[in-house]
Structure formats: structure tokens, C-alpha cells
Nucleic acid binder design. Structure first.
Lengths: 357, 357
DNA sequence: GTGAAAGCGCTAACAG
DNA sequence: CTGTTAGCGCTTTCAC
């Protein structure tokens, strides 16, 4: 076994990569201030000195201790991401976008998955994680959808917690946020379904305290109204935003005396669940029932038939969320505002269309 | 605007959640040592004092500053995860397992996605991230598959970097590792395909420097040998472990003068890509070509036909990876060893079987 | 049972 | 251009 000696010559096997600035200083025969300056690229140091220092830095693979640095600088170069379910492709793709932007700016991220704390309500979990991250380990936090209310955000605002949020317009509270025009998206999808001649349109929704979900039903209603269809309250079922939930919701829809001939799902996971249920029930998609989803996750192209859905620019959302968080933190003078993105319909096969060869 | 005052009364708006132990001490009329003891549950403090302190802790939502704590204690209660692609369901599910275990023990994790640094080779990216994480911000690191070689691991071992690795047996180097018996898994899948009467079995592989991939072809060969089938070198194609790569690989396989009548893919993403290609080429699965994958990601149940595959216990793998990393860090006296898990065949439809109702 | 004080590794005045 | 030093917020002896 090999012990990596610290400045005091003691064993440091309990601490990974253990040299300190002091060791380098001693080796290079300079002061710790000089080492710090070299490592932080302060131009003032003499080229000769810099090289002498760098020699030992390289030789020992030295890295500045982050805790000490952060303690001093009060800047972590790390952001937190709070999401409800890492397994959802939607979140994964948004996170991908966040991480890509973050990597470009040499930021790191800590991801908190709200599904990991059981017997706690979702909003409590969020508060828990926010509090946790606010121990100085993060410069700001991105919320990928939220169950928190405006009162919560108001409190965080007052406490100077830096937030960037997806799914709720927080302009009034003073946080940067991104929303997708779900009314329009849902409208497009349902309208398309109606365009195929369907008049009995089911709606599988998910539940959220505030935000997108609320709006998607508005789009559904708008399309229905446009086609002069009377809304059937039995046709709206909760699918919990999950595959399993969508499966159950679809089954209950089909168990109705007069089942729908088309179903719009508020996200793709539920649409995928519906298609799975249909397959097991030997209901043909789209011949017997047409289906449309929302999000456009990767899986939509892998099913048979391929899923018609409404596309959200997920990576783009991630990048924007990150950039706006950083601007907010740096207070770039950018007026805090909500950015509303417009989704687009992606026509594939589950609606009844035939894709060109 | 409301400023949260620090101990010096100065504005601290630049720093989230900014009270210090000193503020609490002042408010409660005790020393900082006492506050520290209360917050760390040192039994010695008087009940009266504890409550006095806790009152202000609660009132101000106080949280100990992590950087200072870590700097002092040299224990971050954070682990790093290095993965190649967060979008891969396989990784997402393993990470889910890691996070679940981590949350139970109040550990946090930092995820590094190797796909984010462009124009760098995968192994360089890994080294880069490991070095980055070894700045004292992490107690140990989990590698979800790796392109590093034994020499690298040897170096890390000597430097006391704490690692727990999936996909390579590192017992000899002295790191805890988990492998899945891919030889057996691949053997099961290919044997099943042969059992359906297929004799021209294609193999879509991915590329890795060391580890699983290498073994999967061995299982493929074993099954072939068992059925007295001569291996056709044209039947082995690289699918890069991705959906797109699988799609291309499948197309090139079908373009062969004598194309295979069954294809085994070394992971599900490539199998999914193959099914997508088949659909576009109007090749029926499983009637024209049977397909089997590896991993058993969620999507396997959503395709039509459903994908027959080899199951890896992903969440379990994640939990084990985490637990073993912690044992290694704490040096629980547990002998460092490799744990080899046995995968199982999950028969669905893409192989030609019919699922019971 | 509690407080005073040293020191973790680093950065940033300030002095030279 | 370089070195000395204070101090970031915390834990932990060591006195009392």
C-alpha cells in the first residue's frame, strides 16, 4: 500500500488526491500565494515561476481543494437539478441539455430525484431538497416541473435562493421560468385527431398542482369547441403521467359503454401505456382507436405504429433553463421574465396518418 | 427586497441561505461550539440549551455550510457517477438504483456525462472527470462502464481514489466491481433464437475497450457451436450501442446476399434500432427476422412485437455499486472482490414466441 | 455542560 | 513580481 503524504508527512489515505497548495509551494520553493496565483491564472506571475510551479502541479496531478476554494470564494460553480423522475425520458433529455450547457461553462450539477424519498408528498420533497442544496453546495437550482405554490416561490425569492423553473410562469414572483404553450400544443393534437373524423375524443391527463397540465385541458376543450363537439366528462381520466397509469386509464376508457374512438394523452409515457394496453386488449391503433401524445420522447419513433405527438424542444429547454439561471445569479441586468416556447405537432402513425416511404 | 443579514450585519444577497453558526450562537446567547454540538447531535448538551438553539435554527431555516464542514471533516457525503450517456435507459435505471441507496444513507451524487465533452476520446473524458471529482468534492466515484485500462486503475489505486466499477472485473487491481455474466446471457439469447429453428444468426455488437462486450460474443459463439452452426464473419456488425447505430447495422445485415434470419443485439437500444429499421424496410419481426436484445430496458415492453431480451437487474446493480463503494471507503474489512451477477432470458415476442393471454 | 481557540486549504488584500 | 497574513464557517481538543 502506498500512502500519499500530506504537507505534514502524515498518511492521507483517507482523503483522495491529497496534496495541498502548501506542498506545491514547498516543492517549488515559493509561497502559497504564488501557487494560488498560478493556478488561478493571475497574469502577474513571472513566467519562470509559473513554470516551476506547474511542473510540480503536473507531476503530482494536483487539484485545488474545492471546499476550501468555495468557502473562500462563495461560488460553487455547481447547480442543483430537482426532478421528479429520472426514468422519464422527458426529464432525461432536458437534463442532457442542462448538462451540455453546464459543461461548456465548466459548471457541475447535482441531480435530486424526488422519487427517492418515500412517504413524503411531492412538494415536501421539493422543499427538502431545496433546503438541502442551500447549504452552500450550489449556486442555484433548476426545478423540472414543480408542485410548489407561488407562496413557496415568494419565500425563496425573499431568501435569495436562485431558481430557474420549468412549467410555471414565475415572472411575477421574480424568477426566470420557461413554459411551453400547452394550450396550443394540446389544441393541435386534438384538432388533428378530429381532422381524422373522430368525434369521441378521450383525454388522459396527469396531475400537477400548478402549471402545464392545467393548460393542456384548455387546448383539448378549444379543439373540441372548434369542431362543435360537446365535452363528455367521462372521457377525461387521470393517467398519473406514467406508463402504468396510462395503461390503466386507457383500459378504463375502453370499459365505458360508449368508448372514445381517439385518445389524447397529456404526455408520451401515458400514450405509450395506452398503446401497450390496446395491444393486450387486441384493440388496433389507429384503426379502432387513434392516439396522440405530448413531449416527443425518443421512444415515439420506436413503437409500431409510431406515436403522433406534440414536440417540446427538450434539449433547448434544458439549455435555456441553465443559461437563465446563470444570468439570474450573475444578475446580468437581464429582466427576469418567463419564456414561452411554442410546441409543434409531429405527425406519425398512431393518429391514422400514413408516413411517406 | 429583503436582505438576509449575515453575522456582520452585511447584506448577503449574493449567498443563498446565508446565516452562519455564529449568528445562531449570538441569537441563542451561546458559543458557536455549542451550536455545532447541537446540530451534530452530541448528546452532552443540556436539553434546555439544545432547545434554545433549535428554536433559532428552525426560525431561520438554518443549514450548516457544507464547504466549511467538509473542509474540516474531510468527508463530503457525496459520490460521483461517471456514465457515458444519460439518455440510455440502462444507465438511467442503474443510476436510479444508486440514487435510491444513496438517499437512504443521506448521500448525494454528482453525475458526469461523458458525452458532454466533444472532441475528446472517451477514456480521456473519464480521466478528466475523475480528476475533476478528486478535488475533494466527492468521497468516491462509480464508473458505469469504462474505457479505462488496468494501468489506469492501478494508478488510481495507488492514489487512493475510491472507485466502484460496473462492467470490468477489478478484483486483481483491488477495486470493488460488478460484472454481469454476459457470456451466459448472450448464450441464452442466441440459443433461444436457434431453438426457433434459425441457423443464420446475425450479431450486432457495440464497442468497448474492455469488459462486457468482449464476453457477449463468446456467448454467441458458444450457442452457435452447440447447434453446430458455423460462424459467418459477415454476420457480426458494429452497432455502436445506440439506436441509430443498430438501425444502420441491421440495414447492412439485410443488404447481405444471404441475410440472417435472426439477429442478436448486444444491447436493447441496438435491438430497438433494428426493429425500427425492419419496420421501415417492411421486414416483419419475427416472421421474416427474429430479434433478441440485452438489458431489458422499459421500452422492451412497449414495442410491437415486444422485445425478447436478456435481463440485467439494473436497480440492483446500482444499489450494489453504491453499497460496495461505501464499504470500500469505510474499509469495512470487506475483502474487495468482483461480484458477478447472472442475467436471465426474458421471452417476449420478437423471437417468434407467442405470449400467453 | 460550555466556551476559547486552533486550524482545515484556500484567496485576496497589503506590504515589500 | 512575490510573500505574509487574515479569515471564510466549521469541528474539535482542551480548559474551566
Amino acid at each position: 500500500m502506498f500512502f500519499y503524504p500530506g504537507s505534514d508527512g502524515y498518511q492521507r489515505s483517507f482523503y483522495t488526491m491529497s496534496n495541498t497548495i502548501k506542498d506545491i509551494a514547498r516543492m517549488a520553493g515559493v509561497s502559497i500565494a504564488t501557487v494560488s496565483r498560478v493556478l488561478n491564472n493571475h497574469a502577474i506571475v513571472h513566467e519562470k515561476t509559473r513554470e516551476k510551479v506547474m511542473k510540480y502541479v503536473r507531476e503530482t496531478d494536483f487539484v485545488l481543494n474545492q471546499s476550501a476554494k468555495v468557502l473562500k470564494e462563495r461560488k460553487t460553480h455547481t447547480i442543483g437539478i430537482i426532478a421528479s423522475n429520472l426514468l422519464s425520458s422527458f426529464n432525461a433529455e432536458v437534463i442532457k441539455g442542462i448538462e451540455a450547457s453546464a459543461a461548456e461553462r465548466e459548471y457541475r450539477s447535482i441531480i435530486c430525484d424526488c422519487d427517492n424519498i418515500h412517504n413524503k408528498l411531492r412538494d415536501e420533497q421539493e422543499r427538502h431538497y431545496i433546503k438541502l442544496l442551500c447549504d452552500g453546495s450550489v449556486d442555484g437550482i433548476i426545478l423540472l416541473h414543480t408542485h410548489l405554490g407561488l407562496d413557496d416561490f415568494d419565500r425563496y425569492r425573499k431568501r435569495n435562493v436562485n431558481l430557474s423553473v420549468l412549467g410555471v410562469n414565475l415572472e411575477k414572483v421574480g424568477f426566470p421560468s420557461i413554459t411551453v404553450d400547452s394550450v396550443h400544443g394540446a389544441y393541435l393534437a386534438v384538432k388533428h385527431l378530429c381532422g381524422h373524423g373522430h368525434r369521441k375524443i378521450g383525454f388522459i391527463f396527469g396531475h400537477q398542482r400548478i402549471g402545464a397540465e392545467f393548460h393542456r385541458i384548455a387546448g383539448y376543450r378549444r379543439a373540441l369547441a372548434e369542431f362543435g363537439i360537446k365535452e363528455n366528462p367521462l372521457y377525461a381520466v387521470d393517467g398519473e403521467f406514467s406508463i402504468k397509469g396510462g395503461e390503466n386509464a386507457f383500459r378504463s376508457l375502453m370499459a365505458l359503454p360508449d368508448p372514445p374512438d381517439a385518445v389524447f394523452c397529456a404526455n408520451d409515457d401515458m400514450a405509450l401505456g395506452s398503446m401497450k394496453a390496446a395491444k393486450l386488449m387486441k384493440i388496433r391503433i389507429p384503426e379502432d382507436v387513434a392516439i396522440a401524445g405530448f413531449d416527443d420522447i425518443i421512444t415515439c419513433e420506436l413503437t409500431n405504429p409510431m406515436l403522433t405527438t406534440v414536440r417540446q424542444p427538450k434539449e433547448e429547454i434544458g439549455r435555456l433553463l441553465f443559461e437563465r439561471l446563470i444570468s439570474y445569479i450573475d444578475d446580468d441586468g437581464i429582466r427576469v421574465s418567463n419564456l414561452s416556447l411554442t410546441p409543434e405537432l409531429v405527425v406519425r402513425e398512431s393518429c391514422g396518418c400514413t408516413l411517406p416511404e
